[in-house]
Amino acid sequence: MSSNEIKTVEGTGIPLVLDDIDTDRIIPARFLRCVTFEGLGDHLFEDDRAQDADHPFNQPQYRNASILITGRNFGCGSSREHAPQSLMRWGIRAIVAESHAEIFFGNCASLGIVAATADRNDLETLAALVTQNPDCRLTVDLESLCVTAGGQSVPVRIPDSARTALITGQWDYLSRLLSAQGAVTAHAATIPYLNDFPD
C-alpha cells in the first residue's frame, strides 16, 4: 500500500461560501517574492483578513480546520501555485466548492489536495452545519463520493483522473510522466517544427 493514497479526508471544516475568490486574494502577490513555498500559510487571505475581523480564517474556532467549504470559481485568476500551497500549509487538505478554476484545480491535483465540487444548496447546508458546530467532524470520502457530517451526507464530484490518482496514491505526476520518456523522445521526432517542417 502506497503512503500517498488519499481515500478520505477527515477533519473539521471552515465555511467561506463566496464566489470568484481569486488567487490574488488567497495569497497577495507581494508574498510571491520568494524562492521557496515555506511560510506561505502565515499569509493566507492576509488582506481579506485585515479588512474583515469576522473573516472565517480569523476565527479561532476554525483554526484546526482541514476542509474548506466555498463557492463558485474558487481559485480563479493567476496560476500561482503559491495559492494552494498557502492553503495546504495553513492546514487545508480538501476544498469542496461549487466549482474550481482550472489552473487552480490542476495545482491542487499535483499537491494531493482534494478539490471536489458539490451543489450550492449542499454547500450551504455544510457551511451552516460547520458554523453552528465548528467542532463537527467532516469526512470527504472519495470512494463513495460524498461528504458526511453530523449524520448527514451530501454528494460530491471530482474528475475521474484526479479521483483515481488520489485513491491509488499516483498523484506524483512527475514520476508517471518520467516513465514514458522513451516515447516522448520518439514523439518529438514526429513534430514538424522540431524537424525543419518536412514536406
Partner: peptide, 21 residues
Amino acid sequence: AIGIGTSNVAQVLATQTMFLN
C-alpha cells in the same frame, strides 16, 4: 497556449510533457 503551476513547470522541465484533460 496554457498557464500552469509550479509543479507543472517542474514536470515540463523534466519531461517536456504534462498530463491534461
